[in-house]
């Protein structure tokens, strides 16, 4: 991470913040007012474009980002009655993600920052998810434990303070969302797998199959690839509905158990769930119920802010502005990017 990507300046609170997100297969543009009010959160999903390939095709994603980002930008300004000159800062996802896709957003954001002479806030996509609960819960304050689950990521993070995040553990192989996709593919349910597995699981018995609970009791690391293999072995003897239900329950059990353990170990009273897989209803319910039983506050964004979106990037960018961290003209796009890269 070249140090020249970031610079420190006087902390500030941008009144009107524009955010761009293009790290995977969603193009999104958002406007955030005073760090509180989402004026607009436009998302153009490419899901149907990639569905026939059973996964995201990077070059197709890049081409679509190229086509839609400027019209989205135009729409965002038009519908809110704002102009480029009204913007106080620009936030952009600069990783992790598909490198060519990240490049699209970063190139546009850097050009805007240069043309408008406004600060550029370089946001880590995962920090976007981490801070997404703030969009609807402005009272949320550190410390809290965040379970971040998506198609590309599964990790537990302790948000110690606004500028201090501790990665407690992450997946050693597949992300939770990826495991859902692979099980869906195995059962020929189509892509994306998450919603389809959840739907079929509702008709099945979660205790029908005794599937493993991988990495149980082994710190905060996750592993889902063995679970996927176990589903594969069981697929001859069981119905797709039972397979989905049992698989989903195994994933939920592991996620919930580790999250609660982290809250207990670090003595944290607040727990949040974020990322695309946070849209999974049974997971939301299970974590919420368990938190309530233990007297912990539970935060989860509404569906719109769980999947990739610009509003969460704006919120994370706003937190960077408050810390006085901005990007230089040398900002790069990164396929992988550690949390709080600017601190290293």
């Amino acid at each position: 991470m070249p140090e020249s990507e970031f610079q420190r300046q006087q902390p500030f609170e941008p009144g009107l913040l524009l955010a761009l997100e293009t790290s995977c297969d969603e193009t999104s543009v958002a406007l955030l007012k005073d760090g509180r009010q989402v004026l607009c959160n436009r998302v153009a999903s490419q899901e149907e474009l990639h569905a026939r390939y059973g996964g995201v095709v990077p070059e197709i994603a890049c081409r679509r980002h190229f086509e839609v980002i400027h019209p989205l930008l135009e729409e965002a300004l038009e519908t809110t009655g704002k102009r480029f000159g009204d913007l106080d800062a620009i936030a952009v996802t600069h990783g992790p993600g598909l490198i060519g896709a990240v490049l699209v957003g970063v190139t546009v954001a850097k050009t805007l920052a240069l043309a408008l002479d406004k600060p550029l806030l370089p946001v880590n996509h995962l920090e976007g998810h981490l801070f997404s609960p703030l969009l609807e819960n402005p009272e949320l304050e550190p410390p809290w434990i965040s379970l971040l689950v998506s198609g590309g990521h599964t990790c537990l993070v302790l948000v110690e303070d606004w500028g201090s995040l501790k990665l407690l553990g992450k997946t050693r192989d597949d992300a939770a969302g990826e495991a859902f996709d692979k099980v869906a593919k195995m059962l020929q349910l189509g892509y994306p797998g998450g919603p389809r597995v959840q739907k079929l699981a509702a008709e099945g018995n979660p205790e029908a199959i005794d599937l493993p609970r991988p990495m149980r009791g082994q710190g905060y690391a996750f592993s889902f690839s063995g679970l996927k293999t176990a589903v594969h072995r069981a697929r001859e003897q069981h119905s797709p509905a039972d397979l989905c239900a049992s698989f989903q329950q195994a994933v939920i059990d592991v996620l919930v158990e580790k999250t609660l353990k982290a809250a207990e170990e670090f003595g944290v009273q607040r727990v949040s769930l974020a990322g695309g897989v946070a849209a999974n209803q049974p997971l939301r319910q299970a974590l919420e119920q368990n938190c309530r039983q233990r007297g912990l506050s539970f935060y989860v964004p509404s569906f719109e802010y769980c999947t990739d979106n610009g509003a969460m990037i704006a919120m994370a960018g706003y937190q960077m502005a408050r810390l006085g961290i901005t990007a230089t003209t040398g900002l790069d796009a990164h396929a992988s990017l550690p949390l709080l890269a600017w601190r290293t």
Binding site: C62, F66, H70, L103, V104, T107, V108, T111, L112, A115
Partner: peptide
């Protein structure tokens, strides 16, 4: 190169849109 073509066009397109 696909990426190179996009980079230049994105820069031009964004300047054009903003100003």
């Amino acid at each position: 190169s696909f990426t190179g073509v996009r980079t230049g066009l994105l820069l031009a397109k964004t300047l054009a849109q903003a100003d």
